[in-house]
């Protein structure tokens, strides 16, 4: 009898915490989206004004477009690079643990460190990347100053930072593929590509899905990278979803509109992930 109350006692702190820091904020965001508020003055009900503004807000669509560009580069690049190294590591090798640990190093280091470091690497005049390009006889690239290249450059940096985690995840995935499947394919004279396409790929599909979902969430969560590197520029071409919320909320104190942005970005993330899940499930059944 008393044990039942013990259960409630054990989960009570969680329930209180959930109500305060999750349920209330979600509910309150539904209130905020209909208001104009700078926290100090009284809240002002504005009906659908925030939605109307959003539908006509070039910056909102710019942030969405920037996120899309980021994801279109980041996701395929990450999958290819991670699979490539995971394939190489998935065999009897000396120093395998060392390689894995080295590739993993950028994963554990703070994004602030990585961004400050890459700011130097990307520097137009004297960055290591341009010095390397000049040394091999190519021209300098405006990594962060060229509006068309700034977001792809951030995608490159993010891939460098995160890919170590996905190498490890793919390695786990590859090791779970039963060796008999490859042996059977060998007996039937399958080529390396056929084995990869028809055995490896379907077996690691869940890992690919995980990479896609985590990268998508990561793309919509980009903040410190543009905050330090570009401030969202040049020409707002690196303005990310979270950086835009941050600016609206904490530069301009447009709490109602910032909450509206947050609400829609969150909705979009969930929508995109559900679509991705459907696509992956279809791929598996084919």
């Amino acid at each position: 009898m008393t044990r039942r109350y013990t259960g409630y006692g054990f989960v009570l702190p969680y329930v209180v915490h959930f109500l305060l820091f999750v349920a209330f904020p979600v509910g309150f965001s539904l209130v905020l989206v209909f208001h104009r508020w700078n926290i100090i003055a009284p809240m002002e009900f504005v009906g659908l004004h925030n939605f109307h503004r959003l539908a006509n807000d070039a910056l909102f669509f710019r942030a969405l477009g920037n996120t899309l560009i980021f994801l279109l580069i980041h996701i395929p690049l990450q999958i290819v690079v991670a699979l490539f190294f995971a394939e190489l590591l998935n065999r009897q090798l000396r120093l395998r643990g060392f390689f894995r640990a080295a590739y993993f190093l950028p994963v554990i280091v703070s994004g602030v460190v990585v961004t400050i470091l890459w700011q130097r690497l990307f520097s137009y005049d004297s960055g290591l990347l341009n010095r390397l390009l000049v040394a091999i006889g190519l021209g300098k690239v405006g990594w962060l100053v060229d509006p068309d290249l700034a977001m792809p450059s951030i995608a490159l940096m993010a891939t460098w930072k995160n890919v170590g985690l996905y190498i490890v995840l793919f390695l786990v995935g590859l090791q779970s593929v039963p060796a008999q499947l490859y042996e059977a394919a060998d007996l039937e004279g399958a080529t390396a590509w056929q084995k990869f396409r028809h055995i490896t790929l379907p077996m690691i599909n869940p890992t690919i899905f995980l990479v896609v979902v985590l990268s998508t969430i990561g793309g919509f969560s980009l903040f410190i990278e543009p905050y330090i590197l570009t401030g969202g520029g040049p020409l707002n071409r690196t303005l990310s979803a979270v950086l835009y919320i941050y600016k609206e909320g904490f530069f301009f104190y447009h709490m109602g509109y910032a909450a509206t942005l947050g609400f829609f970005f969150a909705l979009l993330i969930m929508l995109v992930v559900v679509i991705q899940k459907k696509l992956v499930e279809r791929e598996v059944t084919i």
Partner: peptide, 8 residues
């Protein structure tokens, strides 16, 4: 997604 709870 944390984006929805950030401001509140």
């Amino acid at each position: 997604p944390f984006q929805i709870t950030l401001i509140p």
